[in-house]
Nucleic acid binder design. Structure first.
Lengths: 249, 249
DNA sequence: CGCGGTGTTGAAAATTGTCAATAATTGTGG
DNA sequence: CCACAATTATTGACAATTTTCAACACCGCG
């Protein structure tokens, strides 16, 4: 299933894969399941796959067979227009689900590229469907995950549609920080997994604009930038930048 | 449930509402259902509601209870940021489903405003869930609808992230035409249901830019513009504009 | 140690936004 | 049905932001 050679399956049983034991459970799985239900839901994970940095978990156009839950690592998803345009549609980290775009046409509609060595749980969509029919909480959970993605994209549209460069980047950083913090990382330090160009693609900006805006933030004492290492010195300032009135359409 | 007074329920039985008889069936409903299944799926529509032009079918923050299928009329959905920013996230027409954003948090995450007098089918989400558990085709259909919305938003991100004004507007027009044509309308003429400002909000442009770009297209003989009445003179030219290489990030 | 990919910065150009004036259209109430 | 008010649309001149092009610096890795 994976597009590139570096991805290789791991026998699920062998490594005792079990959502019920997974420390990402609260992020991936529905809460409030009974022990029996929990055990059954464990069964949706058919395998675990390693994906090397730079390789693709799936590509646009490939047959869609499964959703993927990220266990470790960091991904970007991007769509390519016919004319070669390329747009990063999101960055995904541990506990997040990718592949939802493939359901509608039974083919993936974007590429998922690992930005660092990663490991994902393969959840065959057929199996999810069967189990969701029996476990109501799982059914609702699947709906919630898809709805969440829709709402997330609304937020991106707000960003792309009406914000200026500094507002976009501030919103992006706050979002990243929030998600990282929810996973136990520092509230003030982070290492970017993506290039300036990828950030720019996601935010609808050129890489130079991203770089300049980082420099501006650094000059204002809001953040500290050393290549991909960032330190947030003044989170409140970032919030003020996002909420500033100018630059909306 | 509706936010504004002008929306009033219609007794579903009285007007013999039935998906099985609806001429939008192919757009709304799964295909290949058995007669019995079809009859049961009819049951997801609890009522029909009329929504007057300018009033809201639902608002951000309201409790989410149902999805809505548009029978007639035209809607926009928009999100409002805390600071008063407003972003149109989509335009919806007959046969399309709105409200998906509400599932994740049990509250609507955007406003749905009727841009012309409309009539919608109310489909309580509880009931959809129950029935989806029994009718596999319905379950898959719900997944497909949500996935389709995710993919649609990817397209919008491509548009907002990397296209110039004329490319955005050309893509917008082509998309509208295609959807209208699928509903039996002319392939070359249309009446816009929304203002320049609403188009601009959707496309991440100011209304003046939208107006100017319309004028430019008209000057180039690509379209004819008389206020909201449009005639597409040269669809191929619009395609060429969308596919032109420049202006991507 | 050097090379390729990545990041920074400057100056000029292009695109889009802002402000403002006017026109056209639609809705409303007499 | 008409007239007036309010909304919507068009257009111009100018300003602001972002992009483009280019040069150079910095890692990281073989």
């Amino acid at each position: 299933m994976p597009s590139d050679c570096p991805a290789r399956p791991i026998d699920a049983q062998a490594i005792k894969v079990a959502c019920s034991n997974c420390n990402l459970r609260e992020l991936c799985m529905p809460v409030g399941l009974s022990p029996e239900e929990l055990e059954r839901v464990d069964g949706v994970v058919a395998a675990r796959i390693k994906v090397k940095r730079g390789s693709r978990l799936f590509r646009s156009g490939e047959p869609f067979k499964a959703l993927f839950a990220i266990r470790t690592g960091f991904f970007k998803t991007c769509v390519a227009a016919a004319d070669g345009r390329d747009q990063v549609t999101g960055f995904q980290m541990a506990g997040e689900i990718i592949g939802l775009d493939g359901i509608v046409s039974d083919r993936h509609a974007c590429d998922a590229v690992a930005l660092e060595d990663a490991e994902v749980c393969v959840m065959p969509f057929e199996r999810i469907g069967e189990l969701a029919r029996e476990v109501g909480a799982l059914q609702h959970h699947v709906h919630r995950i898809m709805s969440r993605e829709i709402v997330r994209e609304h937020g991106v549209m707000l960003l792309l549609g009406g914000m200026r460069a500094d507002e976009r980047l501030a919103a992006f950083l706050l979002n990243l920080m929030q998600r990282l913090h929810a996973r136990g990382f520092s509230r003030s330090e982070l290492v970017l997994r993506m290039t300036r160009e990828e950030i720019g693609s996601y935010l609808g900006l050129k890489l130079e604009t991203v770089s300049r805006t980082f420099s501006k933030f650094a000059g204002d004492g809001v953040i500290e930038v050393r290549q991909r290492h960032l330190r947030i010195l003044d989170p409140a300032a970032l919030h003020r930048i996002v909420d500033q009135q100018p630059g909306h359409r």
